[in-house]
Structures are given as C-alpha cells and as structure tokens.
Design a protein around this nucleic acid. Structure first.
Length: 486
DNA sequence: ATCGGCTCGCGCAA
DNA sequence: TGCGCGAAGCCGAT
C-alpha cells in the first residue's frame, strides 16, 4: 500500500492547494465532491480512499447543495439530485458514506471539517468561476488553521489533465497535437479501490460514521424549493442512466456517428453531455468504451472513422472548451474573444439590423424563422438542442440583437437556463465561437458579423433536413405550452 | 457537384 | 522571416 507521501507526490492530475503532512491525529479522510458527482471512475474519490487506506482512517464524502447556484433551474436540480441517489449507492459499495447537506458549499465543507477533524481533505476540479471561488475559500480556511489540513484537488473530469495546458490555447489546432502526443498515457482504466478502514461503531457517539440520510429525490426537491424553468420528462440524471446511454450509443449509433451525426431524427449522438456536465460519468469511461469498438477484429472502416470523430469531439474539443474557461477569466463575455473578432464586430456595431428581437421574444420562440423557433422550442421542451443547430441558433441571436454584447448575454442566459448542460464550458465556448469568433478564423466581411463566420438559413437547409426537424419539434409541442421560467 | 477565395495569426521550418 | 493551414461556411464560378 502506497504511503501518503507517494499519494501526495506531484502529479499532473493533482493540485495541492494546501501542502503539508496529514494532520497527525486526524480521524478520517474527507472528500468534498463538487464537480465529479459519481463514485465510479472518479480519481478524486480514489485518492481519498487510497489516502484513507494508507493512513488507516475511514473515508466519507460530503456534497454541499446550494439552492442559489447562479442560473440553475428546477430541471437542473432534479437532474443533479437523481445523480446523487446513484452516487450515494455506488459510494456505499466502496465503503464511503456520501452525505448531502444544504447550504453554501464552502460553509458545508468547513462545517464537516469541524465536526469530523479530517487528516486530509480531497477535492475535485471545476473550471468555472464559482467553483474556483469555492475552492479558494476552503483552501484559505484549511491553510490558516493552527495545524493546516492538506488539500489536494484532483482534475477528475478530463481525459488529459488540464495542467498540461497551462496557457490559453488559441484554437483546436494548437491543443490537438499536444493532446495526441500524450493521449495513450491517459487512456487507461482506473482501478477500483475500496475503503478498508471501517467507521468505529462505539456507543459513545464519538467518531461514529457520519449520519447522512438516504437521498430521495422528492425529499430533496421539496427541501430546496427552487423555481425557474420547468422540469423535463424522460431525461433522468445519474450514473445508471449515463451507462444506459453509453451502451445505446456504442451498440446502436456509433457505427453511423461519423456519417449521420447531423441527422435530425433520430439523434445519432451519445446524448451524454448533461451527464458529463454533472460528472455522472467519466469522459475516460466513455472514451475507453468507444475506443474498444474500434479495436474489435474486422471492424468496418466506417466505424473506425466514427470513433475517431467522436473522440475528437469528446476529448479535443471538450478539453479545449475546458481550457478556455479555466485559463480565460472573461470566458462568459465578448471580452474573452480574440482581438480580430471584437474589432470587426465593433466596426459593424452601427450596421442596421433588419430584424430585432427582445430577449423575451427569443425566449418564447417568436421569430420569423421556423428553423430557429424549432431549435429554441426543442431546448425549452427537452433541455437539449440538436448539435448542428446550436451554432446556427447563436449566430442568429447575433444577427437579431442591437449589439454583440447583448447577443452574447442573451444567448448565454437562454443556454444556461434551458439546456440541461447549461453553464458547462462547452456552452460558454459554443457561444463565444458563434458570436465572438473564439477558436475560429475570419471569413468574408459582411454586415453585422464583419469577418466572423456567418451561417444562413438556406445553406443550413442544404446540409440539414430542416423540414423533418421542424415537424419533429411540432410533435413535441402538441398539447402543451412551453415550460418557461417564472 | 465541386472549387477557390475570403481573412487573420499561430507555430514550425529555415 | 516565410509559409501552411485552420471548430462545424458562404458565395459565385464552372
């Protein structure tokens, strides 16, 4: 069994936010689960368990659930809580109790530290601003104690650790070769480790296992009482559902993914982005399952090409998006976009806008464009939008808004509140790509867009079966009004 | 149906 | 310093 020094030695996937030796008379190891909301293939939980086994201490996990996460809506909370049910069960299999407490996450964690006196606190990485802020608060408090508590944070939700890309990457072409150079080192399954040191069960009440009620969805939903955008039927969160979707993708869709991923109906994609967003499944688990298909004997060339293009999307482009959010503090505004794009948009700021829609008109899908309206309604009704249309949707918001800053804010707000994977690095990057030319190059100059790439309804119709898609969304609408925010 | 130009800047070769 | 080429396209020429 590795000793703690080995476990806390420098590693690309681990940042030691508070350094030092485990607290000598600590009574446990505490894992603060933030981003990686799963017990399977979770290297942060693995580190906590390995440290517990090494120090002969029991391990517990705490999740702080705040009812005031920015922009989060009822549909997101239900999805998240459904995930916690699976995760509590899976963690118990590993000998780790998972306790969910309501409140501001740093406060929840620090209270858990007071009551259980851990030797080490383990965290996981989350590149968005609020995640960085929460971790900084916890790190500061842990470091300023009379006996500082070491606080390693594990980059659990990327295949290739993001520390290998310390600067903001300019485009996919700059990060792609760096990823491919080292990918083979990271495309390896994680071990399954169980906690070996049981919680004491003495009668005194001292040092007993942390008391966490079994999570039930309705109970927690009742406790947090959040409003906002309504829930989505038939779109459950959790590791179990993520595994189902992965199986479905590999068995039924992968072979055709390369060719047919833009098919409107049925989707040929994995539809795992929300589960990835909440950490219900590891991108490593997905990558290994998909890659295995390419290695089967006698596999069709088409399947091999599909695997390649899927891994390009799920590793290169997803991790580029994470790099953008982690390294550019202005990731959620036009200010985070490249100079050439901001200059050209400014030059065209006073171009007449033949069509102008307010945020409310857009939210209600009340534009002249049936394809755009269908995409907006699909998102509102189902919590997701066809990948191909996400680009078109955001570019039209630029075209129909008084200025690019407003367009950026409106697109991001709709994305964050309605998409089940809202507030994900992919969403920030998608809007920045469409409106601010992020990771893109200039094209022919034209009104409003300047040299930012343009997309047109007519051309979209050539590459995409718009009629079929519009009819499909009309079917979704039947018999119900849009679940708009309150 | 296919092709080239559009337009900027990174990263590598030299 | 020069040069190739690029997160998902558009448009007009052929």
């Amino acid at each position: 069994m590795a000793d703690w020094k080995t476990l806390l030695a420098p590693h690309p996937r681990v940042r030691l936010l508070v350094q030092g030796a485990p607290v000598a008379d600590g009574s446990c190891v505490l894992y603060w689960m933030q981003r990686a909301q799963r017990a399977k293939a979770n290297p942060a939980l693995n580190l906590a368990i390995a440290l517990g086994n090494s120090l002969k201490l029991p391990v517990w996990a705490v999740f702080g659930l705040t009812p005031s996460y920015p922009e989060a809506q009822r549909r997101h909370y239900r999805f998240l809580i459904e995930g916690l049910v699976d995760t509590q069960a899976d963690a118990a299999q590993l000998g780790v109790p998972l306790v969910v407490r309501l409140g501001d996450p740093p406060a929840v964690v620090l209270k858990a530290v007071e009551e259980s006196r851990p030797a080490v606190v383990v965290g996981d990485e989350n590149p968005v601003r609020i995640g960085q802020c929460w971790r900084a608060k916890v790190a500061e408090s842990l470091s300023q104690r009379a006996r500082p508590i070491p606080f390693p944070v594990v980059d659990a939700d990327v295949v290739v650790p993001s520390s290998l890309f310390p600067k903001e990457e300019y485009a996919a072409r700059t990060i792609r070769p760096k990823i491919h150079r080292v990918l083979h080192e990271w495309l390896k399954p994680l071990p399954v480790i169980k906690a070996k040191t049981p919680w004491p069960t003495d009668e005194s009440g001292q040092g007993g296992p942390p008391q966490g009620e079994p999570i039930t969805v309705e109970h927690l939903m009742g406790q947090i009482r959040v409003g906002g955008v309504g829930e989505v039927p038939n779109y459950p969160g959790g590791t179990r559902e993520a595994e189902r979707r992965l199986q479905r993708f590999v068995a039924q869709r992968l072979a055709r993914y390369g060719k047919d991923r833009n098919e409107p109906i049925p989707y040929m994609t994995s539809e795992l982005s929300a589960h990835l967003h909440f950490g219900h499944i590891s991108p490593l688990t997905i990558a290994l399952a998909v890659q295995k298909e390419a290695e089967e004997a006698g596999v069709a060339a088409e399947t091999k090409a599909s695997v390649e293009s899927y891994l390009e999307e799920m590793i290169v482009r997803r991790e580029l998006a994470i790099n953008f959010v982690a390294r550019n503090p202005k990731y959620d505004s036009l200010a985070g976009c490249p100079d050439w794009a901001r200059a050209t948009l400014a030059k065209h700021a006073n171009d007449p806008r033949p069509k102008l829609y307010t945020a409310t008109q857009l939210e209600r899908a009340e534009t002249h464009d049936p394809l755009w309206n269908a995409a907006q309604k699909e998102m509102t009704l189902t919590g997701r939008m066809h990948n191909y249309l996400r680009m078109y949707w955001a570019k039209k918001i630029l075209e129909w808004s008084p200025d690019p800053e407003t367009a950026f804010a409106v697109a991001l707000d709709l994305n964050d509140r309605y998409e089940m994977d809202g507030r994900d690095p992919n969403g920030y990057t998608g809007v920045a790509w469409a409106i601010g030319g992020k990771h893109d190059r200039p094209w022919s100059e034209r009104p409003i867009f300047g040299t930012v790439r343009y997309m047109s309804y007519d051309s979209t119709r050539r590459k995409f079966d718009s009629e079929r898609y519009i009819a499909y969304v009309r079917g979704l609408e039947r018999g119900g009004s849009l679940p708009l925010g309150d």
